[in-house]
Simulated scan of single mutants.
Amino acid sequence: MCELYGIISNKPISLNESLKLFYKHSAQNPKGWGLSYWNDKSEITIYNEGKSANDSDLLQDILSHPIESKVSIGHIRTATVGLMSDKNSHPFTTNDCTGRRWTLAHNGNIYTGSQLLPFRDKQLGETDSECILLYLVDCINKKTQEKGNPLNSKERCEVIDSITKDLSQGNKLTLLIYDTEQFYAYTNIQELLYVSSQEDYYCFVSVPLENSFFWNKVPLNILIVYSGNEQIYHSQDHGNEFLKTTPMKFHNFTL
């Protein structure tokens, strides 16, 4: 399985130490890496490489300079099928019809999800994860067009809540998403997303980092949403925990 990393804060914090600890796990996840973070103008800096983070001169150069941000999403890839390529490396990012930029990283597998199939011809790479983002933005666009105005905070939460409830049925789904204002976290797999609550921020990881933080499991089957270091949304339990006995129908997506 891949590993995720996410930070959401109410003020810029230094990311270098936690990123270095996170990318140390690349020996077990050598099929690609990615990193995104935002400045105070909500402008994204994003890097993706289809190689092990341990072999990346680019990443070493990035981490040799101070990185401060309120928000970051990182990913290291373990691919069972599919090419090692920049286009298959998370996180993925695109704009909705209002110009809002959405960024997503995924850990898991999509076995059943016909709603994602129309986006196979629209994606740049080969992964189910990119299709999830395209499907998500398509849903946001449809709701926006129905309303005739951009969706507000609660409405965006409700759309993502509906998507995670739908896609978590029969699939392995752990997601970190950022829409330039709100940070979304979701998992339906035991012990594949942890969170550490600090004074000014939350840090999310798939595998606890080797630091002094105390790590808690993120609640299963529940979408949680943050603005800065304030939790603004907590869904009901979707009840779609993925178990080893869950029936699987493979749609030939790749991680």
Rank of each mutant, 00 (worst) to 15 (best):
Y5S: 09
Y5K: 11
N10L: 06
S14V: 07
N16C: 05
F22D: 03
S26W: 00
S26Y: 08
A27R: 15
A27E: 13
Q28H: 11
N29G: 01
G32R: 08
G32T: 08
G34C: 09
W38I: 09
I44G: 13
Y47P: 00
L58M: 13
L59G: 02
Q60M: 12
I67D: 11
E68Q: 15
S72Q: 13
G74V: 06
T78H: 08
T78W: 12
K87H: 01
N88C: 12
N95F: 13
C97R: 15
T98L: 07
R100G: 03
I110D: 07
G113I: 02
L116A: 04
L117M: 11
D121L: 14
K122R: 12
D128S: 01
I140Y: 07
Q145A: 13
G148N: 10
N149L: 15
V159C: 07
D161T: 06
I163M: 10
T164A: 15
T164K: 15
K172S: 12
T174G: 05
I177Q: 05
A185R: 10
L192E: 14
V195H: 01
Q198F: 11
V205H: 05
S206A: 09
V207D: 14
P208G: 06
P219M: 12
N221K: 06
I224H: 00
N229Y: 07
H234Q: 09
S235L: 08
H238K: 15
L243D: 03
T245K: 10
N252D: 10
L255W: 03
